[in-house]
Computed example of a mutant assay.
Amino acid sequence: MELSDLSPAESRKRKRSITTLTVFMVLIVVAFIISVNTGHIRLTPIELIKTLFGGGTDKQELILFEFRLPRIIISVLVGASLAVSGCVMQGLSRNALADPGILGINAGAGLAVMLYVAFFPTETVGSVMLLPILAWLGAGFVAALIYVLSLKKGEGLSPTRLLLTGIAVAAGISAATIVLTIRFTPEQYQFVATWMAGSIWGSNWKFVGSLLPFVIILLPFVCYKARVLNVLSLGDQMTIGLGASVEKERLVLLAAAVGLAGSSVSVSGGIGFVGLIAPHLVRRLIGPQHQFLLPGSALAGALLVLVADTIGRWIIQPSEIPAGIVVAVIGAPYFLYLLARSKA
């Protein structure tokens, strides 16, 4: 549809949405420049550009390409994936509080990853490439369990029951994780503690390569399904009346959301609230249409995790605070605010 074919109100909304997305992209570029310069050694904008194009010193290339750039890329990919996953779950469940962390999806993925790390090495390329797949399987199992337990006879999916079931399952998995840590060596326990706090632990090019295929395939697919998600958000009866296959489309989109969340958890640990905060922020700015809400959530989530990781690396140098803790400082109060406003 051409812009001239839209009504004045729709045209203004579309222009506002495009402007909002542009602002998010500019902010991500600014955050990228700041993040590259966060550390003991600073790179001026001129040095950064020269190094990117192969004109820097060996030390500058080592800092940029081996230490900082992989971590920044992973932060962006993880933030975008978690935000889109949360946006899809909110649309499917029609529950404003749905989030892969709150619903236990991240916990299921994390348990699978920790079981693998506890018994197998993670230094080889083959083992690293397996992590997102194992995380997806763990997250998928938990998602299926929560979905089945949330169904009510004759009523379909209950949003309130979905939230409570997810919280209960997440608590059970957390308890199982604590029991599992008893068998860990001190080194393994240190890794688990860091992972559970939401640290970007997989910060090299091997982990970028393991995560990138999931993002490249699933993010465009979910955005392609934006119109279907708009219809599913109207309710099952309305969806059936419009000729859409409710269960088939719901399961396909849920699998994509679980894949995005699970693969992200495999390299970033238990970062929560991204899938809650980013979609809500973007929905307030540009409205509920998923054609703009999904890419907007991806950009907002990428910005949130990148900024959180940068703050965590900067605030107590030379040590660092995991990005998950920084996000939780913002996300926990916001979750309580949404819970207080919820009518469910």
Rank of each mutant, 00 (worst) to 15 (best):
A98D: 03
F119H: 15
E320V: 03
Q289M: 07
V305N: 04
A226N: 07
A109E: 04
L285H: 13
T19M: 01
L306R: 02
T38L: 09
A257W: 05
L339A: 03
V327M: 10
S174G: 10
S7W: 06
G198Y: 06
A118G: 10
L260T: 09
R250P: 00
G209K: 11
L253N: 15
L164D: 02
L251H: 11
F191E: 10
S268Y: 02
C223Q: 12
M129F: 13
G79S: 08
R16Q: 11
R12C: 00
P213R: 06
I316D: 09
V23W: 15
V267P: 00
A323T: 09
A344M: 02
N95K: 04
L304G: 06
T20S: 12
L137V: 15
A278H: 14
M1C: 09
I216G: 00
V215N: 11
G56Y: 11
A135H: 02
I133W: 13
P121D: 05
L164C: 03
G172I: 09
P295T: 13
L64F: 06
S35E: 06
S203D: 07
I72Y: 11
I321D: 05
R183F: 12
G126P: 00
Q317E: 10
V148M: 14
A171C: 04
I34K: 13
M25S: 15
S75Y: 08
E10W: 04
A107N: 12
T22W: 13
P220K: 06
V246Q: 03
I105D: 02
A168C: 11
P279N: 10
L304F: 08
R283L: 07
I74N: 13
A302Y: 02
A323H: 05
V78Q: 06
P213I: 05
M196K: 15
S93Q: 09
